[in-house]
């Protein structure tokens, strides 16, 4: 048999993309707004979620899936406020949709209003994995330098909101909010920017408002179609 070349031309991740799309549609129909939180390690994702869930305890039905390479420390921090399930990746540097599905099945119930997915601290690999979210949010803390967006373009291109965390430390660190905003908007011109300090409870109102508005927009769009 002579050598034969077969033309294929297909997206290698097509199946995964379709699965994420399908799950997102189910969430939309149910009215559950899904947020995928990404950042480098220690940027303050769990702290932001603690502040959010504390505030929303009697307002919205919320659940959190929190990814970690090992340990359930983040889940334990959130448990006082919210239904939470730990997703342990066993070393993998990002969450995949299959792990999210497993976590969902373990939750006592699918959240009615909001589902937060805290990704693994990593600005590279999580950028390439659609977790069926409606909104991808990238956190950047004032201690990690204001030059990060340009260094991790895919993450900032695929995120719609940038939360600048730990703003209480601004007087002590060389971090310019204007610089980081400009850098992010070179990659994504319409990037929404929010400044927060979880330990002082600053900016959490604006953050919660933004999420409520986004969920309303999702519900409005769903009822039109």
């Amino acid at each position: 048999m002579p050598a034969e070349t077969i033309a294929i031309d297909r997206d290698i991740q097509a199946e995964k993309r379709a699965a994420a799309e399908g799950l997102r549609r189910q969430f939309t129909e149910r009215g559950t707004f899904v947020v995928n939180l990404v950042s480098s390690p220690g940027s303050g994702k769990t702290s932001l979620l603690e502040a959010t869930c504390r505030r929303w305890r009697d307002r919205w039905n919320v659940a959190v899936l929190v990814g970690d390479l090992a340990t359930d420390r983040d889940a334990e921090r959130l448990r006082p406020y919210v239904a939470v399930e730990q997703l342990t990746t066993g070393g993998a540097c990002h969450l995949e949709l299959s792990l999210v599905e497993k976590g969902l099945a373990k939750l006592p119930q699918v959240p009615r209003d909001f589902l937060f997915i805290e990704n693994i601290g990593n600005l590279v690999c999580p950028a390439s994995h659609d977790l069926a979210e409606h909104l991808r949010v990238v956190c950047i803390s004032t201690t990690e330098g204001d030059d990060k967006p340009g260094k991790y373009p895919k993450m900032f291109r695929t995120s719609e909101v940038m939360v600048i965390t730990k703003t209480d430390l601004l007087p002590h660190v060389p971090f310019d909010v204007a610089n980081v905003t400009e850098d992010a908007r070179l990659i994504r011109e319409d990037m929404q920017v929010i400044e927060t300090s979880a330990i002082n409870d600053i900016g959490i109102d604006a953050w919660c408002d933004l999420l409520e508005q986004r969920r309303d927009a999702m519900l409005a769009e769903a009822s039109e179609s």
Binding site: T5, I6, A7, Q13
Partner: peptide, 26 residues
Amino acid sequence: FRCVSCGSGEVQVISGDEFRLISLTL
């Protein structure tokens, strides 16, 4: 992400985000 012609940032990626299987040679 800026248009080289008019400078606008409202641009859509039409190539560059792909990871595709193009062909196989047996």
